[in-house]
Structures are given as C-alpha cells and as structure tokens.
Simulated scan of single mutants.
Amino acid sequence: MSWAEVGQRWKLRLVQVDWYLCLGLLFLLLVVISLSMGAWKLNLIVNDADALPIEAVAIRGERARTSDEEIQVALQDLMKRSFFSADVNQVQDALEALPWVYQASVRREWPAKLKVYLVEQQVVAHWNGDAWLNIHGQIFDAPKRSDIGALPLLAGPEGQSKVVLTTYRQVSELLKINGFKLDSLSLSPRHAWHGSLDNGIMLELGREDKMARIQRFINVYPTLVKQSKPVAKVDLRYDTGLAVGWENAQKESQ
C-alpha cells in the first residue's frame, strides 16, 4: 500500500468522525432548545392567572373586628395572580397590615385555594390616648369601636409600654383583692408613677417602692374614709407617711 492510499484512508476516517460529531452536537442542541421551550411555556402557564387562577380563599380563626370586605380589599391585587405565582408572604403581609389583625398564616392548597388562619389583636388597654395595647404589651393603631367595653387608660414614654402594662397588672391585682379598681396608670418621662381609682382618688406613687406604697394606702384607707371630707388625692411619695388632698379643699382652691 502506498503512502497516498494510507493518507486517503485517514482523510475518510476524519470526515466520518466529524460527521458523527456534528450529528451529536446537533441532537444536543435540539434537546436544549426543546427543554428551554418547554420551560418557557410552563412558566407562561404557571404565571397565567387565567389558566391557573386562585379560585377561593378560606379564612379560619375567630374574627370579631375584621370583616370579609376588609380582607377582600387587602387581597384584591394579589388575587389577580396565578395560583403558583402568588407570593404567600405578600398575602400574609397584606393581611397583617389590617388594623385588628395580629397574625396571619397562609398556605396553598391544590388545585386553586389559599388557606388563611387569622389571629386578631386582643386589646387590654388604651395607650397614650389614641392607641391600643394588646395582651403582649405591643402598641397598635386601629379605629375606635363601640363594642369594646371599658378599658384602663395606660400611658408612658416611647418604648415603655410593656413595663407599664406589667406594672398595671401587679398594682391592679393588689388593689383588686382589697376591694379597689385601678382605672388608669401612667409613667412620666421622669419615671414617676401616677394612678387613679374608679372612685376618683388620684394616687401619686413616685419612682420607687410602688407596691409598698400601694399597700400603705390600703392600710390607711379605712381611716381616711371616716373623715368628713371625701378624698381627692393621696400622695405616697414619702418614706413613712402620706399626704392627703381633700375634695372640698381642691374645689375651694380652684
């Protein structure tokens, strides 16, 4: 066999090898294109609110102050998305932005439903006049409602709501077991405590030993009510004693 014949055979083999390589690359390219087209079409379907709409939202949990209409308004834009493209975190945020909603949990339920569980705010007091305080001592803003009964009036500096609520519970419990009801409690910017009872008596408790001072008031009250003048104010900011302001005396001074 001559060198020319050998060279010709190698050329044929190289041509054959290149042909198989081209066919393989072409097949791989077709596969990639097909997968990309499939993924693109799937993405269109998944995000198409007409193809996969959210057909229902199931609301669970006890609701006394959050209406269906408020929920519908809060979710009206989010409901325009498809079942898969709807962001449950955004749905949760939209619901928790409602004034009387404390917490919301959201999950998808195949094929076209969102399940929502709501927990409403449990209000325990008014805070600084126009806000509310929940059972955790957290401040929240919500419209006034006529269906909420009498609540204590609490007040204090920014960041002190939990401290004021805790102190109110302690002082109120001590007064309650002795026949008194605490209507309001406030903490001044200088950290002095002021309270008032449902019978109109004002209590000045100062900064320290507030529980001991409340007990001192309880102990001396039977003596105070024996006086001919009704008590208007009791100043307990003393180490061992107290000062009493009489109602008639205050009216005369005014």
Rank of each mutant, 00 (worst) to 15 (best):
M1C: 09
W3P: 02
V6C: 11
W10D: 12
K11E: 13
V15F: 09
Q16E: 15
V17M: 01
W19G: 12
Y20Q: 11
L23I: 02
G24I: 01
L25N: 05
L28V: 06
L29K: 01
L30K: 00
V32P: 03
S36V: 12
M37D: 05
M37N: 10
M37A: 15
A39H: 02
W40D: 10
N43E: 01
V46E: 01
N47S: 08
A51W: 13
L52Y: 11
A58R: 13
I59M: 11
R60C: 07
G61M: 08
E62K: 15
S67F: 03
E69N: 09
E69R: 12
E70Q: 15
V73R: 11
A74D: 10
F83C: 13
A86T: 14
D87H: 10
D87F: 08
D87N: 14
V88D: 04
Q90I: 06
A94H: 10
P99V: 01
W100L: 10
V106L: 05
P111I: 08
L114Q: 07
K115D: 14
K115I: 15
E120Y: 10
A125L: 10
H126T: 08
W127S: 09
N128W: 06
I135C: 02
H136P: 00
G137V: 13
Q138R: 14
A142D: 02
A142I: 02
P143F: 11
S146D: 15
D147Q: 14
D147G: 03
I148K: 05
A150K: 05
L154Y: 14
A155L: 09
G156W: 09
E158A: 13
S161H: 03
V163G: 03
V164G: 11
L165N: 00
T167P: 02
Y168E: 00
Q170S: 10
V171A: 14
V171N: 04
S172Y: 09
L175R: 07
K176I: 00
G179W: 00
K181Q: 10
K181Y: 13
D183V: 02
S186W: 10
H194Q: 07
G195V: 07
G195C: 09
S196G: 03
S196P: 00
R207T: 11
K210E: 05
A212C: 00
I214H: 06
F217C: 06
F217W: 04
F217S: 06
V220D: 06
Y221T: 12
P222E: 07
V225W: 01
S228W: 00
K229W: 04
V231I: 04
L236C: 03
R237H: 05
Y238H: 14
D239K: 15
D239A: 13
G241A: 05
V244F: 12
G245Y: 05
E247D: 14
E247R: 14
Q250K: 04
Q250L: 04
K251I: 05
Q254P: 01
